[in-house]
Design a protein around this nucleic acid. Sequence first.
DNA 1: TTGCATTTCAAACGCGTGTATGAAACTATC
DNA 2: GATAGTTTCATACACGCGTTTGAAATGCAA
Lengths: 223, 223
Amino acid sequence: MAADHTRTAIITAAERLYAERGFADVTMRDIVAAADVNLAAVNYHFGSKDELIAELFVTRSLATNRERLRELKAAEEAGDGRADIHAIFAALVGPTLRGCLGPEKQRSDAARFMIRASIESVPPIRKIKNREVDHLKRFAAAMRRSLPDQDPADIFWALHFALAMAHQTIRDSERLTRMSDGLCDLNDVQAITDRVVAVAVMALTGRAARAPAKEPAKTKARA
Amino acid sequence: MAADHTRTAIITAAERLYAERGFADVTMRDIVAAADVNLAAVNYHFGSKDELIAELFVTRSLATNRERLRELKAAEEAGDGRADIHAIFAALVGPTLRGCLGPEKQRSDAARFMIRASIESVPPIRKIKNREVDHLKRFAAAMRRSLPDQDPADIFWALHFALAMAHQTIRDSERLTRMSDGLCDLNDVQAITDRVVAVAVMALTGRAARAPAKEPAKTKARA
DNA sequence: TTGCATTTCAAACGCGTGTATGAAACTATC
DNA sequence: GATAGTTTCATACACGCGTTTGAAATGCAA
């Protein structure tokens, strides 16, 4: 119904403002001003500020995970159950990278909101975030199917590094641009994705190049 | 003089609290309670909360950079001006990793404070942070000396990725532990450093494994 | 001790925040 | 068109924040 107009306006405005300026700097008065609704509307429709944030996060989290898994599934089907490892990483970092970088026009507030959420870690979100681990485990499982002989720990490390690289590239693209005097092209999202994926794959499979540990290092007793 | 006792107590307490809980959650009342001094002492000795944060950041930033550059210099001297690329990356990420991970007992509030500062990006810090770019450029220069034939853009990307991996490992070590069900050992700091360095080096030198771009991609017109 | 500058202290101020209130406006059903 | 339920609105409340204040305490030279 059109009765949801106020609700929708709040969600849209809040997501955009949070994406742009972070949770700390955006007040409820900012949100209702941007949404052109009354101050009390947020509490009426969502209960509290925290519940608004939680709802935004849950909605977007599900959507992001859905898209990632859709790409993952397509990759696995293309490989008869064993996806190409590049495709797995691409499914992991591609959606977020595309939503946060690239031409201004096609960036999504949704993706940038999720990055904010992963950075600022505000209380209402922190409690929900635990499920993300389960989501990532599905990618780890796909990677293990793709490379059955790989050391499981290396799989988790590579997954962790892939997210780290994608994440930081989004967060700190400005520093990279300034550091490289514009040499690193932040507009070619496909090239960035390819680069992150390539490094992640090397992190996983290119162990030959890794410097050997000086000593066996204390192996965590497991018996 | 002993007259600095209050000042010192505030700095110590603030650094610890900020490192543990972040800027957003720590109030001046928390700080003065932990330091066991009067509320007005912060404003008397530092002027304002922001100036306290700025002083903490500047002090620690200089110290961190100094240690990094000390290791870098040692590496360059060991190689007669051309440091081994592994050593350069180790100088970049080693100090911070050692200060933030590893046995509880030897973690430093200083290193963890710097990580907080790089995460939360509170106004008083944001203004100072620009100098970090100059600091990183010195590492990029060392890398170029180490590998003169390397594509400059790749050098910046590898530097960026190295920081990303180290940074995220510190920030989100808990997620990695949970995701891997404890398989990834976060206590062996040396092994972690070696791993990050190895991947960073592969990101820089192992380009053969990278998937070729589908098309030339729009080259940013520079003329 | 006296006198003056420095430092500490309890208390309060002003401001911005999220939230609550109760009346007014709107919507839909009979 | 009267009525009950829903939604909007202006306004106010309570609270926590960083900061200020002015007096008391302390340090220190003469």
